[in-house]
Amino acid sequence: MMYILEKKNVDQTLSEWSAKYEVYTPQKVEAYSQFLPFTESSELALNEPLNTRYPPKSLFLPQSEVMLKYNKRLNKFDEIKILPEKRIIFGIRPCDASAITLLDTVFDTDEYQDPYWTERRENTILVGLGCSEPPSTCFCTTVGYGPFNQDGLDALMTELDDVYVVEILSDKGQKLFSNFPASSKDQEQSVLNIQLKAKDLMEPAFETENLKQTLDQLFESDYWSEIAESCLGCGICTFLCPTCFCFDIVDEVQRNERIRNWDTCMFRIYSQEASGHNPRPTRAERTRQRLMHKYSYWLDHIDKIGCTGCGRCVRHCPVGLDIRAMLRAASNFEREVVNVG
């Protein structure tokens, strides 16, 4: 079933939804866009050629989150109740939605459920916007996804002239759009064509077959120090990444709060031990951890690559390091070793 949301009605629709839900949409901030709560004065940035710079994972795993407060004088803890409002995230790109399904396998497993994550997930409707013209820095098709991938979404919009054609992907999505006009057969055919064309536009960025084995074999090699030589060791690639989820729990003793902050394997202190020893002493080992986690360890756990090809790390690396080039170099590096040996 597909419905029609006219572009000229988007503001009004979001405004109506805002009465019942907290609605998040990509909005202009400086020269980039970011998911922010919708208000009447919001400047929507739905048709930006590039995805939001700051990843929407932050709406489920905030960069800094107060987990509990304590009162030292009364020797008492106050757990923070998570009372998430009902939310709609409108215009999320398929790479970011599928990244959230990957993170479900971390924060919501049979064994452990992180209540901060699961409550937000349950109370959120994800309305996706597919990418008709994927930018050259994106590589979702290479890692097994696509510009109109449906994973994690309740509805998926395809831009078609003056309208968004909405595909319904869950009951939550059906409920949200049931009062909208239905699309015509012609429109549905056009949507199919747009989706196929977008996928065809994307060239494979690197070889994924045997990539895990290649990286595993390179574990002790010089490959890592070669690719990491210009790495600054900042947190851009991991903080902007929709699948990176590492965190650090800190007691802010002056505020009497326990906080969970994003952390990153690219920082020296990430693996710094209290003894003074650091098992990942240089940027080479840290870069190895970042790449191996995404392209080897995720496969060990759930047999999927832990990257959805959003391209943020490629676009925003301050020294122009490109994960696609690094992975191509890995395959070539192995061949050189084999030839020599």
Binding site: Y54, Q63, L232, G233, C234, G235, I236, F239, T264, F267, R268, I269, P318
Partner: peptide, 22 residues
Amino acid sequence: CIRCYACREACPMCYCTECFVD
């Protein structure tokens, strides 16, 4: 700020082994 410390890491003068924030 998202505290990625790219400004610090890009700066030639920020070479402290342990930055005050760490």
